[in-house]
Computed example of a mutant assay.
Amino acid sequence: MRLLSRLGILLVLIGFLNLNAQEIHFPSLSGRVVDEANILTGAQKKQLTDQLQTLEKQTSDQVVVVTLKSLQGNTIEVFGFRLGRHWQIGQKEKNNGVLLIVAPKERKVRIEVGYGLEGILTDGLSKMIIDNDIVPSFKKGNMQEGIMKGTKSILEVLQGQYVPPKKNNVSRTDKGAVSFGVGVAVFFGLLFAAPLFNSIINNMLLISIVNSIIVFFTFVGVGPLGEAFAMGVFMFFGSIVTMMSKYQVGSDSWYSPNGSFSSGSSSFGSSGFSGGGGSFGGGGASGSW
Results as ranks from 00 to 15, higher is better:
Arg2Gly: 06
Leu4Glu: 12
Ser5Thr: 09
Leu11Arg: 08
Leu13Cys: 04
Ile14Met: 11
Gly15Met: 13
Gly15Cys: 13
Leu17Gly: 13
Leu19Asp: 07
Leu19Asn: 08
Glu23Cys: 12
Glu23Val: 15
Ser28Asn: 15
Asp35His: 12
Ala37Pro: 05
Asn38Val: 01
Asn38Leu: 04
Asn38His: 12
Ile39Phe: 05
Gly42Asp: 07
Gln44Pro: 00
Lys46His: 04
Leu48Gly: 00
Gln51Asp: 04
Leu52Tyr: 03
Thr54His: 08
Leu55Ile: 05
Leu55Tyr: 04
Gln58Phe: 03
Ser60Gln: 05
Asp61Gln: 12
Asp61Tyr: 13
Gln62Cys: 08
Val66Pro: 03
Ser70Val: 05
Thr75Cys: 01
Phe79Glu: 11
Leu83Arg: 10
Gly84Asp: 05
Arg85His: 09
Ile89Trp: 07
Gln91Asn: 15
Lys92Leu: 08
Val98Gln: 14
Ile101Glu: 11
Ile101His: 10
Lys105Asn: 07
Glu106His: 06
Glu112Tyr: 10
Gly114Asn: 06
Gly114His: 07
Ile120Trp: 01
Thr122Ala: 13
Thr122Gln: 06
Gly124Asp: 09
Leu125Gln: 09
Ile129Tyr: 00
Asp133Ile: 00
Lys140Gly: 06
Asn142Cys: 04
Asn142Pro: 02
Glu145His: 00
Glu145Asn: 02
Ile147Glu: 00
Lys149Ala: 00
Thr151Arg: 00
Ser153Asn: 07
Glu156Asp: 15
Leu158Asn: 10
Gln159Lys: 15
Pro164Asn: 07
Pro165Gln: 03
Pro165Thr: 03
Lys167Leu: 09
Ser171Phe: 07
Asp174Asn: 06
Val178Leu: 15
Val178Ala: 08
Ser179Trp: 08
Val182Pro: 01
Gly183Ile: 05
Gly189Ala: 08
Gly189Gln: 07
Ala193Asp: 14
Pro195Val: 05
Pro195Cys: 07
Ser199Pro: 02
Asn202Tyr: 13
Met204Val: 11
Leu206Phe: 11
Val210Ala: 14
Asn211Ile: 08
Ser212Cys: 14
Thr218Gln: 13
Phe219Asn: 06
Gly223Cys: 09
Pro224Val: 03
Pro224Thr: 12
Gly226His: 04
Ala228Asp: 10
Ala230Thr: 13
Gly232Leu: 07
Val233Lys: 11
Phe234Ile: 09
Phe234Pro: 01
Met235His: 06
Gly238Pro: 13
Met243Pro: 03
Met244Asp: 10
Ser245Ile: 08
Tyr247Ser: 08
Gln248Val: 06
Trp254Pro: 13
Ser256Asn: 14
Ser256Gly: 15
Ser262Lys: 15
Ser263Glu: 08
Ser270Gly: 04
Ser271Gly: 02
Gly272Leu: 09
Phe280His: 06
Gly283His: 15
Gly283Lys: 06
Ser286Ala: 13
Gly287Asn: 01
Trp289Ile: 02
